[in-house]
Design a protein around this nucleic acid. Structure first.
Length: 409
DNA sequence: ACCTCCCGCCACCCA
DNA sequence: TGGGTGGCGGGAGGT
């Protein structure tokens, strides 16, 4: 019995058709930034990004072009972009502003009888035709009018694309006009961000628009994909497994390696109930997080009951391997097992992070592993350690995947 | 019904 | 000439 990747990764796909919410450009941008907003990132390869994020290269262009325009990236060579970071945004915005002002001046010169609207709500009756290279400035026949209309629609689509990326950067936010309630975007600029870009490093990355479970890898969801036909026993099995979860347990383990990371980020991190012991919580330095973690109890609580001895043995083997693997990670100091995130199922990981007052780097394999993990009785692993390599994350994901597959069979 | 925007075709660019 | 790039519109999901 074969189980497709999408069936494994996205349990919701069993019951819902493709959801484009999970593949939005904003979310992709969020994860792109989370993946690459690191001190040790210098050059970004588009193939690498596409591969890590699990999207086509074309989609990477969509976000990279916007990021380049706001200075976060700079094109270095074919297929290569330099990571400039958010420190470069103010300068880029200033240049854009100056350029825009110059253009507006030119436009005013050319159209002295037209008022030039700078606001962003003027698309409806705006002056697209004057800037449409395909149609020129005259709409003198129906073909051109038709072409202009098509061009306008195309531009609107592009605006949505760009807006999603900028929303992800929190440079703008979705709103509506006060009078007509028509959708609009509000410019936020660098509000809430430090000038040098060293503010909350994750703050710009949390999409405010999307609050749903998401697979950053974008591998599983395909438009027009219908429900998997593999429901039946496996979903029953999963349902059974979910029923045994403890809705109220929140368990945390932390280890030593946090100091360095936390010191880097403590100024902006608001640690929640899962804050590492070594780090004083903002506003409550005395409150410590209790270290509780009982792998034995956990494994027994969540252990499926097999009647088949061979299966029991096999499961035992996997459990032991799992525990030793986890403990190894715990020694390294970067795994946070968290129970019960039923709310989190509806949120992308970054939103979960936010809800829990955690600032957790969200890497695409982690999100995958999050989904896998939530698939297996809501044991969710978070990484707190920026230094983890993508390979390690992939190994994590791989292990979880194997574990899940084992559980399913 | 309208808004939103993902998807991928395909033309252009460039080494 | 082939791979990189990105403009563009179809059409499906969301409201």
């Amino acid at each position: 019995m074969a189980l497709s990747y999408s069936d494994i990764i996205d349990p919701s796909s069993r019951h819902h058709t493709y959801s484009r919410k999970q593949k939005s450009l904003g979310l992709l941008c969020t994860n792109f930034l989370t993946l690459y907003n690191r001190d040790d990132i210098d050059v970004i390869g588009l193939d690498d990004a596409a591969s890590k994020l699990g999207v086509e290269r074309r989609r990477i262009y969509d976000i990279v072009n916007v990021l380049e325009s706001v200075g976060v990236l700079a094109r270095k060579a074919k297929n290569k972009y330099l990571w400039k970071g958010f420190a470069a945004v103010p300068k880029a915005l200033q240049e854009l502003k100056e350029e825009g002002l110059r253009d507006n001046v030119n436009t005013i010169d050319k159209q002295s009888n037209n008022s030039v609207k700078v606001a962003d709500d003027d698309e409806d009756e705006d002056d697209d035709s004057d800037s449409n290279p395909n149609t020129g400035s005259q709409n003198e026949n129906s073909g051109i009018i038709k072409s202009t209309a098509a061009s306008r629609f195309a531009k609107v689509r592009r605006l949505y694309d760009i807006a999603n990326v900028l929303s992800s950067l929190k440079l703008i936010e979705k709103t509506h006009t006060a009078d007509t309630r028509k959708p609009a975007f509000r410019w936020l600029g660098l509000r809430g961000k430090s000038e040098n870009g060293s503010g909350d490093p994750l703050a710009p990355f949390e999409s405010r628009k999307r609050t749903f479970g998401a697979d950053v890898t974008n591998i599983c969801s395909k438009r027009n994909q219908t429900d998997s036909s593999v429901d039946g026993d496996k979903s029953k099995n999963l349902k059974m497994q979910k029923e045994i979860k403890d809705e109220n347990i929140v368990t945390v383990v932390q280890r030593g390696n946090f100091e360095q990371d936390s010191q880097q980020n403590s100024g902006s991190f608001q640690f929640g109930p899962f804050a590492p012991v070594s780090i004083a919580r903002v506003g409550n330095s005395e409150e410590k997080v209790t270290q509780i973690y009982d792998w034995e109890g956990l494994s027994s609580t969540f252990r499926p009951q097999y009647h088949n001895q061979a299966l029991r043995d096999l499961f035992f083997h996997y459990t032991e391997a799992w525990k030793s693997w986890i403990e190894k990670w715990l020694q390294v100091g970067c795994i946070f097992p968290v129970h019960h995130l039923s709310v989190a199922k509806q949120c992308c990981l970054s939103d979960v992070s936010k809800q829990m007052n955690l600032n957790i780097p969200v890497f695409s394999p982690w999100l995958s592993s999050y989904k896998v993990a939530s698939f297996m009785q809501d044991i969710i692993l978070f990484s707190w350690d920026n230094s983890c390599s993508a390979i390690q994350y992939t190994q994590t994901f791989s292990y979880l995947l194997h574990f899940l597959v084992f559980l399913l069979f």
